[in-house]
Design a protein around this nucleic acid. Structure first.
Length: 592
RNA sequence: AGUCUCGUAGCUCAACGGAUAGAGCAACUGCCUUCUAAGCAGUAGGUUGAAGGUUCGAGUCCUUCCGGGACUACCA
């Protein structure tokens, strides 16, 4: 950071001296030099043409000359097409590298004393998790780490949608067709077993609909018996019917056992888990409050609704005419509960883009109710993951299952690792297994986090996920190489950077420059809620390092000072790679 | 119909309003008697969906179209 500040100060002085005016902070915009040109930082001088009354090349040349002759910041400069490219002096880079190395918390921004709650995952208990959920889990986990690094106090929370009509659907189908099947009796993982009945419900429902000669759109008069059963069951559930509650607890128990395995496999943890079955009643209280305040009203058909046309959103039903809760009911209650739990300054919901409208409604209602935290709520919307044959639909069984995908990736890694077994001498079977896991999950995480959240993704199961090129594997590999170097040679004497006098190569400068960018990237990622910023940053760092590695011998370098310097630089890259990937919750192996 | 969102190489993605729009995959060429080839170097591949506008400068900002998707439920 200090490099840029110093440079900017010098630039201001240069303009003041040569042209007699002071650049504002706004106007003094430095950019990183594109790699096809020689330089580290560049200044576009076009904006100053009018005030300087000279052409861009003259300005750039004069400013460059001034900086070069009057300060010790530059080693050289060049002017191309009105761009002033500045090559920083090696002493600056060495000083910078030293600061990075000596700061154990490099990349962590000053604390802000602000609490942020990040809600993510939010699974329904009627089906196992699929690739879409994985994206959500990874986005939420990573965002939490990024916000922590940006200085926030972060609380990761999950809300389990453990009640509602969809749960009743699985339950009804199980009652009808289950014949007492259990995870133990069938050998099917609990969440998958329940999901099986969710699919069966949909099949039954469609059969009955067809029998009635109707389409899904027009079921105003007669509804299929199986759906009626589900609706009746929801009512019984809300009334606390013991048999229904019992079945509900049993089946949800199976799902939780399954989720536990999936979360462990993916490395997902939470600070607190909320259950919709606990919070929907709080939601009902808030609805009563809204009625009291005459913000909500009872429609002629008995449903409770709110008019949000002032927010450009239309009417929204908050409670069914049979007084059972709808989806948004619990979100109202959960929001209040969280505020009393955490007194947060920010509340981020990591939820798919298809629910953008839902969150606009939720935030508008909270605003209407005068909640102080209404403005602090934010929906981190991310795009869906589509398959080549269309949208993922659990009901229709058209999904990439999370457990299955992870297992497949581990198998692929295993095959690959066996081909290169010589690299892994001395690893215990347990360590080898852990390595397979680290590589598989790392590839998956990077694959999903590298893309900007707003983009929808297409996943082709046939092509699967790469382990070569711009991947998490590439970064893990880079790190393993660095660790390998460190195993082979210990730096006997600390490298005294302030006495290092060998000229730095362009690649070495580029590496230090990339290391130097970490804090800005953390800030950017936190501001935009985009882990992809960090992913692309780490990728770029690894790329530069691999070029460096191929062209700068270390163990074979005869000049001790140079060798030590390069090893030191390697170590710094390793540390920053590790830190960056930690922000994406990706582990790096020391061997692979 | 309205609202939101996305549109960049064959495919998957990058690009604080800045230079000749960059990577990876796929294709083709080189480089392992080893600091880890899951790598490096290179070739080829583009009217940034279209047209206007703002600007010294637009893939990026504004307007209008075109195309994909999502949402506009007493589903979640």
């Amino acid at each position: 950071m200090q490099v840029e500040l110093k440079l900017k100060a010098a630039l201001k002085e240069a303009f003041l001296n040569i042209y007699g005016f002071l650049l504002t902070e706004e106007a003094c915009k430095l950019q990183l030099t594109r790699k096809e040109f020689r330089g580290n930082f560049s200044l576009a001088v076009f904006p100053y043409v009018q005030r300087c009354k000279e052409n861009p090349c003259q300005i750039a040349e004069k400013v460059g000359h001034w900086l070069h002759s009057k300060t010790d910041i530059l080693s050289s400069y060049n002017v191309i097409d009105g761009f002033l490219n500045l090559v920083m002096a090696d002493t600056i880079w060495l000083k910078l590298l030293n600061q990075i190395i000596e700061n154990p918390t490099y990349g962590v921004l000053p604390t802000l004393n602000q609490r942020v709650v990040v809600e993510f995952s939010s699974p329904n208990t009627n089906k196992p998790q699929h690739l879409g959920h994985i994206r959500n889990n990874f986005l939420g986990s990573s965002l939490a780490e990024i916000l922590k690094a940006a200085g926030y106090t972060v609380h990761k929370v999950n809300i389990i949608n453990d009640r509602g009509i969809h749960i009743c659907k699985s339950m009804v189908a199980y009652q009808t067709l289950g014949r007492g099947e259990t995870p133990q009796s069938s050998g099917i993982k609990g969440d998958h077993l329940v999901g099986k009945y969710y699919v069966k419900f949909d099949q039954l429902y469609k059969e009955q609909l067809a029998l009635l000669g109707k389409h899904e759109q027009d079921m105003t008069t007669v509804i299929p018996p199986i759906l009626q059963q589900a609706q009746d069951m929801l009512l019984k559930w809300e009334k606390g019917d013991p048999a229904v509650i019992d079945l509900w607890q049993t089946m949800n128990g199976w799902v939780y056992d399954g989720f536990k395995v999936t979360y462990a496999q993916l490395g997902i943890t939470f600070d607190k888990i909320y259950y919709e079955s606990d919070t929907y009643l709080l939601g009902k209280k808030i609805i009563a409050e809204g009625i009291d305040k005459q913000l909500f009203y009872k429609r002629a058909d008995g449903a409770i609704a709110v008019d949000l046309s002032a927010y450009g959103l239309g009417e929204k039903v908050l409670l069914r005419s049979d007084e059972t809760a709808v989806y948004i009911t619990q979100d109202l209650g959960t929001a209040d509960l969280r505020y009393t739990d955490y007194y947060f300054d920010g509340m981020i919901y990591v939820v798919g883009s298809e629910q953008a409208y839902h969150f606009k409604v939720l935030f508008a209602i909270m605003n209407l109710l005068g909640r102080p935290y209404a403005k602090a709520m934010h929906h981190l919307s991310y795009g869906m993951i589509d398959l080549p044959n269309g949208k993922m639909k659990s009901r229709e069984g058209n999904v990439v299952d999370a457990d299955h995908l992870v297992a497949e990736m581990i198998d692929t890694v295993k095959l690959y690792t066996e081909e290169h077994a010589h690299k892994l001498d001395g690893l215990t079977p347990e360590a080898l297994q852990a390595l397979h896991h680290t590589l598989a999950i790392g590839a998956l995480k990077f694959f999903l986090l590298r893309v900007a959240p707003s983009k929808k993704m297409l996943f082709n199961p046939v092509e699967s996920i790469d382990f070569q090129g711009d991947t998490g594997t590439f970064i893990q590999y880079t790190y393993a190489r660095i660790c390998s170097l460190q195993r082979k040679v210990q730096l006997e004497h600390p490298v005294l950077l302030d006495r290092y006098s060998e000229p730095l190569s362009g690649v070495e400068q580029a590496l230090i420059l990339q290391l130097y960018r970490l804090p800005m990237q953390v800030e950017e990622a936190a501001k935009t809620y985009m882990p992809s910023v960090i992913a692309n940053y780490a990728l770029e760092l690894a790329k530069i390092y691999n070029t460096f590695y191929a062209t700068h011998p270390m163990l074979k370098e005869p000049v001790v000072a140079i060798r030590n310097f390069r090893l030191l630089l390697s170590g710094a890259v390793g540390v920053v790679l590790k830190k960056s990937m930690a922000l994406l919750t990706i582990e790096l192996p020391t061997k692979m």
